[in-house]
């Protein structure tokens, strides 16, 4: 478990996947030898919230105390995660497929995977847009009103929150089973690594929404 006394540089060295997470938290510069607590004070961030995020992304099945996770910073974090996927992960995946298709234009696996991925991305962007235009503004409004405005059906509000991460897991499984003999192994490795990271991030993202965001909203509504 990561604690406030740990140096952020040590935490990132132990798990490099946390670097983009610290970036989304606005903590990735001027790290030096500072502890997480010192960095949080420097950038005016909540220590418990920061630890909750870092531990969720570094420990399987970990869930922070919902009381430590304020909703507005959580929404900011989730929005930055959306941005990261739109600007980095999705173009990277599409680019790798294009590169492989240039080398093997008639390879059936690449043709069907590109089609699958395009449809997946379209669904994901639609889901992200729904959350950013419908769900998140409503959450902020409720926080500002201190829960006094009622939302009729929270589960209905999150109706589009489907388990899209299953589709990434399936895609990875199928690609591994059908790797063509003559494919560029470096590109296919990159693709599978990017898919694995993406799948894990999607799972963590869904965990935040299902286990923190929705229960916190329900608690806010309770008399």
């Amino acid at each position: 478990m990561i604690t406030e006394r740990d140096k952020l540089s040590d935490v990132i060295s132990m798990n490099i996947d946390l670097l983009p997470i610290t970036h989304r938290l606005g903590l990735s510069t001027h790290i030096g030898e500072k502890t997480i607590r010192e960095i949080c004070i420097l950038f005016d961030r909540d220590v418990k919230f920061t630890l909750g995020i870092l531990n969720t992304f570094s420990t399987a099945n970990y869930l922070p105390n919902p009381e430590d996770m304020d909703l507005c910073p959580l929404i900011d974090f989730l929005t930055k995660t959306h941005e990261f996927h739109k600007q980095v992960t999705i173009p990277r995946l599409s680019g790798l497929i294009v590169q492989m298709k240039q080398l093997m234009p008639n390879e059936k696996l690449l043709i069907v995977v590109e089609d699958y991925l395009n449809q997946y991305i379209e669904k994901l962007i639609k889901h992200i847009d729904y959350e950013e235009t419908e769900v998140f503004p409503l959450v902020r409004k409720r926080v500002e009103a201190k829960g006094k405005t009622q939302v009729s059906n929270l589960k209905k509000l999150f109706k589009q929150h489907t388990n899209v991460e299953n589709e990434l897991s399936d895609l990875k499984t199928i690609i591994i089973r059908h790797i063509p003999v003559q494919i560029d192994m470096n590109l296919i490795n990159d693709l599978l690594h990017t898919l694995s990271h993406f799948e894990k991030e999607q799972l963590d993202h869904a965990r935040f929404e299902d286990k923190i965001l929705i229960p916190r909203l329900i608690a806010l509504q309770a008399p």
């Binding site: 069907v112 699958y116 997946y120 299953n166 589709e167 897991s169 399936d170 499984t173 199928i174 059908h178």
Partner: peptide
């Protein structure tokens, strides 16, 4: 070991 409908469709196509 494939859970989603798009995954099953991809498998069937391949």
């Amino acid at each position: 070991g494939i859970k989603s409908i798009p995954g099953l469709t991809l498998y069937a196509a391949l």
